[in-house]
Amino acid sequence: EWIKFAAACREGEDNSKRNPIAKIHSDCAANQQVTYRISGVGIDQPPYGIFVINQKTGEINITSIVDREVTPFFIIYCRALNSLGQDLEKPLELRVRVLDINDNPPVFSMSTFVGEIEENSNANTLVMVLNATDADEPNNLNSKIAFKIIRQEPSDSPMFIINRYTGEIRTMNNFLDREQYGQYSLAVRGSDRDGGADGMSAECECNIKILDVNDNIPYMELPTQSISIEENSLNSNLLQIRVIDLDEEFSANWMAVIFFISGNEGNWFEIEMNERTNVGTLKVVKPLDFEAMNNLQLSLGVRNKAEFHQSIMSQYKLTATAISVTVLNVVEGSVFRPGSKTFVVNSNMGQNYKIGEYVAWDLDANRPSTTVRYVMGRNPTDLLAIDSKTAIITLRNKVTMEQYKILGGKYQGTILSIDDALQRTCTGTIVINLENGGWKTERPNVNGSTTSAYGLTSGGVTTNGYTTGGGVGTVTFAVGTNGYGVGTGVYQPLRDNVHFGPAGIGLLIMGFLVLGLVPFLLMCCDCGGAPGGGAAFEPVPECSDGAIHSWAVEGAQADPGVLANSAVPCIPVTNANVIEYVDNSGVYTNEYGAREMQDLGGGERTTGFELTDGVKMSGGPEICQEYPGTLRRNSMRECREGGLNMNFMESYFCQKAYAYADEDEGRPSNDCLLIYDIEGAGSPAGSVGCCSFIGEDLDDSFLDTLGPKFKKLADISLGKDVEPFPDSDPSWPPKSTEPVCPPQGTEPTGGGHPPISPRFGTTTVISENTYPSGPGVQHPTPIPDPLGYGNVTVTESYTSSGTLKPSVHIHDNRHASNVVVTERVVGPISGADLQGMLEMPDLRDGSNVIVTERVIAPSSSLPTTLTIPDPRQSSNVVVTERVIQPTSGIVGNLSMHP
């Protein structure tokens, strides 16, 4: 594909002063009249009339201002017609390129970018990527946008960096602390011309929210460390424990969980957390026993609902907070333990037979009670009697068959222990199993009593105003037989109903009585009724242990002297997890690499230009080494992964070609660019190479002026068959790393093997320039072998005068990961000696490409030494070109000997 760059015009300005911009001519005009015609976009296609031609002279003029953003280039189709309108020549194409001017500012895709990042994120963590476009020519400095953070709020210290090329905003360090600042606002400027002062700029805003992580350890705040509670009581709010946590409120990072480390083995306590206030309430859910334990130490710990962040995981240590709990004694009196007792009575047991004893237990003294007296409570058929002091239970009489039938074979009564001092009563249940058989039917001996016959007591103990407190009374009725009435309170003698049979009348009345009395008695049976009513019906509780408890809910005894929690964990005021030193010397210090390119399309053309991809080699501050520590490593990695920007290289050489096209013929422009990019980053799969030549349209003879190495490469590029280089060093790698430098001026290895592609992931750029030379050209300067092993080195120096032969040094590259071609052309410098002034780094560990091109030309400002930085740590492309022209005024350390 032939690409012609023939003419150019500049957008946005009047180019007519340059008319005619081109002219066409046919030799047919020598013997006949020729009419020249042009057509195409900008002529007879919109935009019309940009170009016009003088049909007779063939001069082409530009008539209008053009806009590159509308029409980047024009193709003018040129024809030569005879008087009959027939083509005399094969049409030619004239390409007119519209040179870009920087007339478009960058445009951000959004005015405000929003992002978020977790606090404590590692340095160099990607936060967000900004995007901006520039309508100017792609791959041109006018559209090359450099991003820069120009403002940060809060501005305490710069926390973010931006990649000036990609717009990636990353964390500068790992110190982001949501507890300090929950959000940052950045003002970012994007400037074209790579951020140059002459560029156009636009700004945008970035809001970065800092997300919370659980990087704060909670601690408890106790109003007191000593509390007390009465035994046998429950408490739903014994103590309020406030938890302090600096993490985001109401999040799991903030919500606390208080737990018992020790002291709650009996599960007496519970802690209920209020997730709105982060206050824990200590509750007593199981009564404590003073006699068993009058003092205990609760040990509490606290953590968050969420796991701790890894940044503080190691800092968290379980810290116990102690609470001293005093159990207050309560006079409990005596109880029957167990609450019921069972005896066996048979027909052989007679009157006053001692069937057992049932002693109340003094809970306060923890021994049999000595302060109570005992009385019978419910005593069906008046079967039993109890000794008021010893609690010995005896039979009143021998059990009769009637009693046996009434009781149904099983007696269940109650006894009461009465503590007159405490005014407390406790009830115990007596169960007697009447063993079947042998019961006599004789009428029992009835002692005079308040009840008649076999009446029974119904809850029949009047406690004379003693507090019975909340117990459940037992009310039992036994139906009398054989005309014996039953009653309590209302008693109807049976003899008033003589007209009925005694049994029938008794049953009838009993039925009514039962129906009438039951609701009444139930109403009177007010459990826990108000004490003090001496005549009231006060049932006696029949709880299992016979005790009458008063479960009060009491508040904790607040200690006015609030003790500080001595076990509060140490919370760092600032995140002391400093893992690396970071230079915070500025926000805009994040450039991972820099490129500079002279805009050769403009009016100010220079003969020297510098291209740096990845690591900028010297002088400027915009180097990857700006940051030590992690940031630096990351930056370097980024540099390393940058790869070769093919678009940029393409643009570079296109512009270079264009520049040469406009220059005097005195400088033949034989440029050869051979690019191997074998599966490298961004490389099109299978790409082999690219070779650019600048030369006369029909003259490829300039290839002959190339050095053998470049000619070989050019041949490869053109698809010509080339002979492989002989394997000059089959025992690769060499034992010695000394470079092998053939004598100067020796012929290159004829027909050597072609430049075998380097290994995958490598990039090779070979550049060559030839320039006219005059007499006295210095012999090529030997260059130290830049490679120890594993690479291909082509070192060539020659002049286009043809009098000097280049020296070529080729390594076997079978093990190569690099290809370095260094070529120098020393112009007509008399007495120049560059020995010692050129330094080449050792590239044995790198995977880099260095193209060094120098032209010695007159200059009065030669550097003292020409140094190529050591690119071992990068994998980039460096193209350095200098122009040094012969001068008599060379100063400094550059000594040029004949």
């Binding site: 032939w2 690409i3 760059f5 023939a6 003419a7 296109c654 070609a657 650019s692 600048i694």
Partner: peptide, 26 residues
């Protein structure tokens, strides 16, 4: 022969120079 020449704007002495088309082979 049928050729195109383009004008060189960079001549320093104001003279007009014409260049035949150059080409770049890719």
């Amino acid at each position: 022969d049928f050729r195109i020449q383009v004008r060189d704007y960079n001549t320093k002495n104001g003279t007009i120079k014409w260049h035949s088309l150059r080409r770049q082979k890719r």
